[in-house]
């Protein structure tokens, strides 16, 4: 449990720090043009508002908790790895979308046209992941059968 908690906090700090650094650059470049229009660019290029940082920290904590839930065997003991990845990506995407819409982080007009594309991308990647995993498992099963027949004769 300690190991998982430590990993969780490290992941939160790393993700939050790295992304905040990236967002700082974005704000520096386009902050003045979008000043007052979004939660992120409320202060223009002068900085990122505290409210946004706290909201973003909460979002990162939720996403990392989802990561611990789906991508480790702490809670879910038995689930196909590809299914874990897909569920994590979907829930993480929904979380970030929720925060963007509810907290007004970015302008969202016109973003609805990207939804079909995003759904297609998720479905295609899910199919690819499942097929890769099934192929890998079949290869392992065939190798095991071959080993057994070679060593039982």
């Amino acid at each position: 449990m300690k190991k998982h908690l430590r990993a969780y906090f490290l992941n939160v700090m790393f993700a939050f720090g790295l992304t905040t650094a990236f967002l700082s650059v974005i704000v520096m470049l386009v902050g003045d043009q979008l000043k007052g229009e979004t939660g992120l660019t409320m202060l223009g290029s002068e900085g990122i508002p505290i409210a946004f940082l706290l909201q973003f920290l909460l979002a990162v904590m939720i996403v990392m908790a989802l990561r611990q839930l789906f991508l480790s065997d702490l809670c879910i003991k038995s689930m196909k790895p590809s299914l874990r990845v897909i569920l994590f990506l979907i829930t993480a995407l929904l979380t970030m979308t929720g925060f963007i819409l509810l907290c007004g982080w970015f302008p969202t007009e016109g973003l609805l046209i990207f939804i079909p594309g995003a759904v297609c991308a998720i479905i295609l990647n899910a199919v690819r992941l499942f097929r890769c995993e099934n192929a890998r498992n079949k290869e392992l099963a065939d190798a095991l059968a071959q080993y057994k027949s070679a060593h039982n004769s």
Binding site: S72, P81, N137, Y147
Partner: peptide
């Protein structure tokens, strides 16, 4: 036909029914 699979476990490969990729 035995193989070490972890620091504390050894298994006879012929006695494996199936194996799958995991996390």
């Amino acid at each position: 036909g035995f193989l070490r699979i972890s620091k504390s476990c050894l298994v006879q490969i012929r006695r494996i029914r199936s194996l799958k990729a995991d996390l």
